[in-house]
């Protein structure tokens, strides 16, 4: 019986840069500010009688702890962990940005173009972005929506959106 051993391929991470302490502090600061906003909203809620039984009690408790620990992480200097991954730069960052844009376009397009067209175009572009040859990307984008239709619509009896534009065009 044939079995397998594996050869490791080289990873291409040259275009990336390491994360910094500033990044940790900045993120913690943003999270702390978010915690302060949450606290500001929470203290408007009733604390209940006896105290602690109202809808605002736990949010206030959570918010106070959130702000305190967030501030602690922000002000102290622990240095950067050695196993932190690198930040994407250049073409790597562009790929992530385009992937995010495609995700947003999927959400925007789904109500208008429906599941078939939106998923097909999304898979075609995402496949190309991830490095698929045109032929593979086209096959992937054509086959997957059909597979989804079989699994979700026929198998699980879930109604998938047909799309308002396509409804107007095909169903009047």
């Amino acid at each position: 019986m044939d079995q397998a051993i594996v050869m490791k391929t080289e990873a291409s991470t040259a275009a990336n840069a390491p994360a910094s302490t500033t990044g940790i502090r900045l993120t913690s600061l943003i999270l702390t500010v978010a915690g302060l906003f949450y606290l500001y909203q929470a203290i408007e809620l009733p604390m209940g009688d006896p105290p602690g039984t109202g809808v605002g009690a736990v949010p206030v408790l959570v918010a106070v702890c959130w702000v305190l620990f967030g501030a602690l992480v922000t002000v102290r200097n622990r240095g950067v962990s050695a196993d932190l991954g690198p930040w994407p730069r250049g073409s790597a960052a562009l790929r992530v940005g385009v992937a995010f844009f495609l995700c947003v376009m999927f959400i925007v397009g789904l109500p208008f173009f429906g599941i078939f067209l939106t998923t097909g175009i999304f898979l075609l572009l995402m496949g190309r972005l991830a490095g698929a040859p045109w032929t593979s990307a086209v096959v992937l984008s054509a086959a997957t929506p059909v597979a989804f239709w079989i699994v979700f619509s026929l198998g699980l009896k879930v109604s998938l959106p047909f799309g308002s534009l396509l409804t107007v065009i095909f169903r009047g």
């Binding site: 397998a4 594996v6 391929t9 990336n16 992937a99």
Partner: peptide, 10 residues
């Protein structure tokens, strides 16, 4: 997508 690391080849 960011790292563009391929899965190891068998």
């Amino acid at each position: 997508l960011a790292s563009n690391e391929g899965f190891p080849r068998a």
